[in-house]
C-alpha cells in the first residue's frame, strides 16, 4: 500500500438509474427475489465507510493463474489462453490499491464445476474455475486464464449466456462492495442476454465489455483483454461531516 493517507469520507450515492433494477421479469428468477418496497436511502455511517482490506498473505502462488491452479502437475486447462488485466478506479478516477478481486467462470466448453450445473458440455479435469488477486498501489491487476465458453441456461427455452467472467470486488469501504461480470468484445450473444439486459443504459453495458488488447498479448502464448472496474468514489471536501478531522 502507498503512504497516501487513507480516505475516510462518505461514498457518493449509488446511481440507481444506472445500476440494474431489482425486478426484471425477463430474467425470471428476479421476480420472486426482488424487494418490492422502496429501499431506505441513508447517508453512509462508519459501518459502510470502513471495510475489510486483505493482505497479500492470503494469496497463494497460483491464485492468479486459472490455467494451472487446479491442474495436475505438468498439465494445464484446455482453451484459448488469455491474460485479463486492467485497473480498479473510483468514480473520481483514482486508482484503488489493495483491492481484492475474486473471479469465477465456466471452462472453455461453457461448463461450470458445480454440483447444481446441468449442461451436457464436458468438464475439464484440469480446470477449477476460480482465482483471485490484489491490485497494486495504483489499482492495476492482471491474471491468466482460458477464455470461457458461452452456454445455454433455463430461462427462456433458448437463452444463452455470452462468454463471461464473474468478478467480485472489495474496495476500501463496505459500501463499495460489488459483483459484476466481464464480457468479451465482439460476442454476438451480449445484446440477446436477459441478464445483460437487466442493465437499462447501453453505456453501462458497454462498460462491462472488455476489448481485445493486442498490445498486451504474449506472442505464441496468450492473447489479452483489458477490463477496468469503477467503484463508488468518496467525498473529499474539507466540509465532510465526520467524527474525526479531515
Amino acid at each position: 500500500m502507498s503512504n497516501r493517507k487513507p480516505e475516510t469520507g462518505a461514498f457518493f450515492p449509488r446511481d440507481r438509474a444506472w445500476q440494474p433494477d431489482a425486478y426484471t421479469p425477463w430474467y425470471k428468477t428476479s421476480v420472486l427475489r426482488s424487494p418490492q418496497k422502496a429501499l431506505l436511502s441513508i447517508n453512509n455511517t462508519l459501518s459502510e465507510m470502513t471495510g475489510p482490506v486483505f493482505g497479500h498473505d492470503i494469496l497463494g502462488e497460483l491464485d492468479d493463474d486459472l490455467i494451472h491452479n487446479f491442474a495436475k502437475p505438468g498439465e494445464s486447462a484446455i482453451g484459448p489462453r488469455i491474460i485479463v488485466h486492467g485497473r480498479v478506479m473510483d468514480e473520481r478516477g483514482r486508482g484503488v490499491g489493495g483491492a481484492l478481486l475474486e473471479f469465477w467462470q465456466a471452462n472453455a466448453g461453457g461448463r461450470y464445476r458445480h454440483k447444481k450445473e446441468g449442461y451436457v458440455a464436458a468438464l475439464d479435469p484440469n480446470f477449477g474455475g476460480c482465482g483471485r488477486t490484489i491490485t497494486d498501489e495504483d489499482g492495476h491487476y492482471s491474471f491468466r486464464t482460458i477464455k470461457p465458453g458461452p452456454y445455454p441456461w433455463p430461462n427462456g427455452v433458448n437463452d444463452w449466456r455470452p462468454a463471461h467472467i464473474h468478478f467480485s470486488v472489495f474496495g476500501h469501504g463496505f459500501a463499495q462492495r460489488l459483483i459484476t461480470q466481464m464480457y468479451f468484445e465482439g460476442d454476438p450473444l451480449i445484446p440477446l442476454c436477459p441478464i445483460v439486459k437487466t442493465i437499462a443504459d447501453p453505456k453501462a453495458i458497454e462498460d462491462l465489455i472488455a476489448p481485445l488488447d493486442m498490445a498486451n498479448t504474449i506472442p505464441m502464448d496468450a492473447s489479452a483483454y483489458k477490463f477496468d472496474i469503477v467503484l463508488r468514489g468518496r467525498r473529499s471536501t474539507m466540509f465532510e461531516n465526520r467524527m474525526e478531522g479531515n
Binding site: 444506472w18 445500476q19 428476479s30 469465477w104 447444481k116 464473474h166 459483483i179 459484476t180 441478464i195 469503477v230
Partner: peptide, 20 residues
C-alpha cells in the same frame, strides 16, 4: 467523474469463486 461499474447477478455458481 467516472460511472460505477454496473452490477450483475452473482448467479447460481457464486460458490465457485467465493467459497470454492
Amino acid at each position: 467523474r467516472l460511472k460505477e461499474s454496473a452490477s450483475q447477478t452473482a448467479g447460481p455458481y457464486v460458490h465457485i469463486g467465493l467459497t470454492p
